[in-house]
Nucleic acid binder design. Structure first.
Lengths: 203, 203, 203, 203
DNA sequence: TCTTAACCGAGACGGTACGTCCTGTCTTCGG
DNA sequence: CCGAAGACAGGACGTACCGTCTCGGTTAAGA
């Protein structure tokens, strides 16, 4: 005995129109200038319909973004950790951090700074899975001896992605493919099975 | 022949009251909920006076922040690069990325995502000088043989600060002092005079 | 096929609250000191709602006034033109030009001096109908032989109402009932069926 | 030994520049859109200087107007009251109630509706003297037997000027020269030495 | 096949803050 | 020491979105 057989009666047409309108507007006028009213107008939808299904603008755009991501950010496993990282990170930078999509992405991240719920969603739906995938790929590499057995995988992820986001969000210019390569070499090198001399023990 | 012989200068009293009010309010209610109106009211100042000297809320708060920074972020040179980095980065994290000031700082960074002028100011007034100081300190260390002679200083800075900002802005939790130490060891280690084995040539 | 089948109509409650608040405030603090903000606050209404339906303060107050006028200014026909004029003009002076309503009325008239649209509305909604009614009553009197067959009705209206508005707006003191009587006697007398001697041809 | 030798140190140059600027601006953009700031800017004068000598915009413009009036509104006595009234009233209508000066004049009158001091000044400086002159001229005519010995001169003035101001301020269209003539004929006729039949006693 | 209840578009609503404008006062500094 | 230049506090302006709330009209499930 279902209590709510058709609770989910949302119109698929409206749903898609809203996501499409949101993404279009973000690209056209920039995330910051997009308003719920404009999305509704563009989608030919009432504001009420948007607020029925999403709590705020950020959530709409996030869903539109998540939908778009698709498999762009997968690690197509070649067996070599450096190659795989290079492929994936290059794709991420090209897709999310360059061109019109960049401002959409940074706009959402900006919004998460004063919207906890959105921060949670961003982490769960977009970031988390990819961080987890990266860690997984690194773990595999470690098992295969491509990394030192005691390599700190969490820090490895931070070292790989941190600089990229840092430069993006602080307006220091996005990384080029070449710089990404150098970054990966450096990070993987320092975690590699043949270790550098221990640094002087520091308190 | 002076071009502007008797320009009336801004009231120092109002100026200080505005900055103080802005910072207080940010701490009390969070950057996102601060409004120009509230700053004006708190400072006992007309809105016009704020708009006369700053283009928007972000600029006011940025100036208040810059004023507060003082010497918190200096590198008190002990001669050892690792110790100095640890001191400085710990101070930065404690000061900017923890407690009530954190949301102020992330709030401003968020605002720069849709305010180019503010982005420029943030870079010039807050970030730039500190990045430059870090690079300078690293250059000195390299000259003193504490880093490999071909160490890429720009990337070093990215590797040191990137993960910290990345975790802050993407809500992954701020670094502990211990993690900062580990990060520095890793980065400096990989750039140290005794090099790790070359990573396998990639691609 | 209806063109606008489901236009949401204005809230009658807000509408009435706004008009009431406007009139109250005018009486309390004087037309000149009433602001749209205050009307909105008093009516428990957002400013937007006022601006949605009226272009400016003057229009709101005018509508409130028009609504209040009711039948105050009718000509209850007794058959005698002098009596009827006296009744009506006395009512007009008492109602519009004395006591708290006076400043409301003069305030609106003042506003029409730099607001063409309001001037039009004042004429159409308040003044015009009453001028027309007066002319109509005079026409009837002329037909009944109470006025000369060639009496200029337009000028008669000007002569009757002109002095009243003139004294009001130029701060010369409102007419007393007695003066109104004398005015009417003079004007109707000069247009009566038994004419005065022609004035000496001039120029 | 004068105690206040230069109490009246106002700069004649500034004074004239202010009045000129005020009048120019009124004509150019309309009384309602003139601001003290604009007058000061146009006159090359500080706002303070304006407020030192006048209480508000209206007073400045009023003085400018008074200065302009000159002898436009005199009654050049020809011996015939109708002719003299026609000359004077025609001049008044042409000068004050037609063309660009009209909106200046109506603007000031509008302002007097919420500025008592200005109302007083208008009466004393502009209106009063002219009303008095008109009454004086009528008194002379009465003494010369051109009016009935018991003619009510105050009401005569109201009847003559009332309709003109009424039509001006209520946007009913200014009187033509011809209408002015008819108006004068009617009013003087009704007060002339050869009286019309008494109107039927009313009430 | 006919309810009937949720969804839908449209957009009015109470709010809040925006950034601008002008007022009338106050301050600075050059002539 | 006057006065231009203009900064200042105050406060209303009219606008823009927010998120909520009616309205009827449409639609699809289930009776």
């Amino acid at each position: 005995m279902e209590t709510s057989p058709n609770l989910q009666r949302r119109s698929e047409k409206s749903h898609r129109a809203i996501l499409a309108a949101a993404m279009e507007l973000c690209v056209e006028v920039g995330y910051g200038k997009v308003t719920v009213e404009a999305i509704a107008a563009r989608a030919g939808v009432s504001k009420k319909t948007i607020y029925r299904w999403w709590p705020a603008k950020g959530a709409v755009v996030l869903e539109a973004m998540v939908e778009m991501v698709g498999e762009v950010t997968q690690f197509p496993d070649t067996g070599d950790i450096v190659t795989d990282l290079r492929n994936q990170m290059t794709a991420v930078v090209d897709y999310f951090m360059t061109g019109p999509r960049a401002t959409v992405y940074t706009g959402i991240i900006a919004e998460t700074q004063h919207d906890e719920a959105l921060a949670r969603d961003l982490l769960e739906q977009l970031l988390g899975p990819r961080i987890e995938a990266a860690r997984e790929r690194l773990r595999l590499a470690r098992e295969q001896g491509q990394l030192a057995p005691d390599a700190d995988l969490d820090m490895a992820v931070d070292l790989l992605y941190g600089p990229i986001y840092y430069r993006l969000l602080l307006h220091l210019g996005a990384y080029s493919h070449k710089q990404i390569g150098a970054l990966i070499d450096l990070v993987i090198g320092s975690l590699g099975p043949t270790r550098r001399a221990e640094p002087p023990p520091s308190r």
